[in-house]
Design a protein around this nucleic acid. Structure first.
Ligand code: MN
Ligand code: MN
Ligand code: MN
Ligand code: MN
Lengths: 218, 218
DNA sequence: ATTAAATTTTAGACAAATCTAAAAATATTT
DNA sequence: AAATATTTTTAGATTTGTCTAAAATTTAAT
């Protein structure tokens, strides 16, 4: 049985492993968890003891198959609870993260599977992130960043890379939501901003924004 | 901000206070929490420090107004989550307690009020226990134990005093649920069992059972 | 009113999760 | 290759919640 803290560390290690084939560094983990490297070293020993990760001194951390499976179950819970909050309790997509961060630690297989069924087995959370099924399988969905799109093609917004409240609220103000469709008009070479035709208006999105919006050609 | 443990202690103290006007003894708390008296003494100091209880050495514990209000909010959460599990996720009434024991510690005012609304502002949980509203007001409902009923009157089952899975499963086997109606036929003087006419059959319930069933005259 | 029994508190220890400061190992510059 | 900088680990301390064993206090019994 894992503590909340162990689960939070494992989730961070899982996410860092997604974009890194070398060992995950102590510092990288410390930065994500917002703690000290020495605390991470302590926790690494515990997770290693529980066979969730492997680790050699100074060599970085690798997640094991068990760790991977465990992490995916925590992420499954996090994302299902987010769907519940948005679809059933009318939370906005910028309000769900902190609560889901707590709810993801509730330990009941029956609960999470019943919740999954109650929500109609959703494939994605309110930020467009895929929800692992009860076996830990993650549904794949084609998507690319807005920065990588081709001009004069039509796209649909299918996810956000940055899930911070600040970014989500910015999108709300631009009326951009998951499912929004638009045509890419121009990629500005100078500042890498992207101009789109959205709801009959031209809208220019900065590189920061474009680089955090997942879209799909339609 | 209270820890899960502090909240669990406070809830136990609240419940013990309901049937006791003297101070709550260290041992009584220890027994409910399933811990040692010395641990309780330690926790008493913390709860006193936070003004949730008052305490003089060897004199037992009294809950304060702040402690009372805080306890009621935890109980509100516990019971609302139980309603959610039974009404929305199809849990049986004997399966909800342990999960609710975890869910009650999730800290979000918005969440619990949204859940309350989503459930249609229920007045009682799946065991017939009243749900405090957002102000901490507890709806009153007339009820008495089956042992205190009068013969030849009709009653409706409105609650259980013992909420253990074992008792709830016993009631399931007898087909007795909240809302069930019956006529009291006889109080047996010798063993204090109660015979009722329920669904056209005579059913004799032992003292233990009758003393844990709340009913209301109809 | 003593004595005996039960309850409650204190003292000291331990595991979990954190921190600071210092040491050890690795990586980067010159 | 040596010197310097960075990263990582260790050592030792702190807080929370728990425990055992012993002391203090209250309650019950003789
Ligand atoms: Mn979390
Ligand atoms: Mn999400
Ligand atoms: Mn609890
Ligand atoms: Mn209940």
């Amino acid at each position: 049985m894992l503590t909340h803290t162990e689960e939070n560390y494992l989730k961070v290690i899982y996410h860092l492993s997604q974009t890194e084939d070398e060992g995950i560094s102590t510092n990288a983990i410390a930065q994500k968890i917002d703690t000290k490297a020495s605390s991470v070293t302590d926790m690494i020993k515990k997770l290693k003891e529980k066979k969730l990760i492997t680790h050699e001194r100074y060599q970085g951390v690798f997640i094991t198959t068990l760790g991977l499976q465990t992490a995916k179950m925590i992420i499954r819970k996090h994302r299902l609870w987010e769907v519940f909050l948005v679809n059933k309790l009318n939370f906005n997509w910028d309000e769900v993260h902190d609560v889901a961060e707590e709810l993801e630690h509730i330990k009941s297989e029956k609960l999470i599977n019943a919740l999954d069924a109650f929500l109609g087995f959703p494939k994605e959370d309110p930020h467009g992130d895929p929800i692992p099924n009860s076996k830990g399988e993650i549904p794949y969905r084609e998507k690319e960043l807005l920065t990588e799109t081709k001009i004069n093609h039509k796209y649909m917004c299918v996810g956000v890379k940055d899930t911070s409240a600040a970014f989500l609220q910015y999108l709300d103000r631009q009326k951009i939501a998951l499912g929004s469709t638009f045509t890419v008009l121009k990629h500005e070479n100078f500042d890498h901003s992207v101009t789109i035709l959205f709801q009959e208006n031209e809208l220019t999105l900065s590189k920061v924004v474009a680089h955090n919006l997942f879209v799909k050609k339609i």
